[in-house]
Design a binder for these strands. Sequence first.
DNA 1: ACTCTTGTTAAAAC
DNA 2: GGTTTTAACAAGAG
Length: 288
Amino acid sequence: MPELPEVETVRLQLLHKIVGKRIKKIEIYKTRTVAHDPTFESRLKNQTIEYIDRIGKLLIFSFDKKPDLFLLAHLKMTGQFFYIDKKGQIVGGGHSDKDSENITFPHKHSRVAFGFDGGGTLYFNDMRLFGYLKIASKDEAEVAKSRFGPEPIHPEFDTKWFTTALLKKKTPVKAALLNQQFVAGLGNIYVDEALWRAKVLPTRICDTLTKKEAVVIATASGAVMNESIKVGGTTFQHFIDTDGNKGNFSNFLKVFGKQGTPCSRCGTIIEKTRVAGRGTHFCRQCQK
DNA sequence: ACTCTTGTTAAAAC
DNA sequence: GGTTTTAACAAGAG
């Protein structure tokens, strides 16, 4: 499940791999992935990748001398980017359930391939077809960006605003944190981890939280994602980075997937329930 | 064969 | 009628 730290891991690696490269050829194996856009190849062909930005879990590619052309990419559940250089060696990344050494491309989950001058190829793979690649104008890209709230990892994240806004909500705190329009980047894994760190139950209704708890939730949300980015994200089921490596943050998870095992803080058995329609992990002893 | 998995959103319920 | 919850999407694992 790629969340902000996994998407950021992919972005940082792709910056090194494909910025400055010119798209020579595009193959579309599944038109659904490009929203059945018949102009997808013709509009991107011969364009040179200028930069790759990110907001929340959305990647935004820009192109040299094309100020009104952007490519929006969302990995959703199982999307992954793989970059293979001209020698056929895997250099790129995303989300997979197989050992990278044994993969040949394209494989049955490859949806789009970008061939670059010089021989490198970027594959977009997506088993469950929820992910998408979409061309956008500058205005459309701005609209897409405007749908995201601020990111807790930002050094100037406005904790005061967050606290005030959070305390007005009447939803379970987990639902609020999963809402990308409110705050961007958290998904099921990092919400559970952040709430465990903050010692707050995911079921707590926001307007029953104290200001102090809200501040700790903000701090924990940013910290858990920043720590994950430093070690290349979390691999729980599928995620692998642009070099085919698994994310090391899996080793630091405290509650996600830990049901039935003792809480590392107090020894109480971690439980799993359903909150906001999602599998939710918590310690009933030290989260209140 | 049936249930469970999740990011996002549209539809439904409140 | 604005807010909150549920279902749908897809495909695979168990």
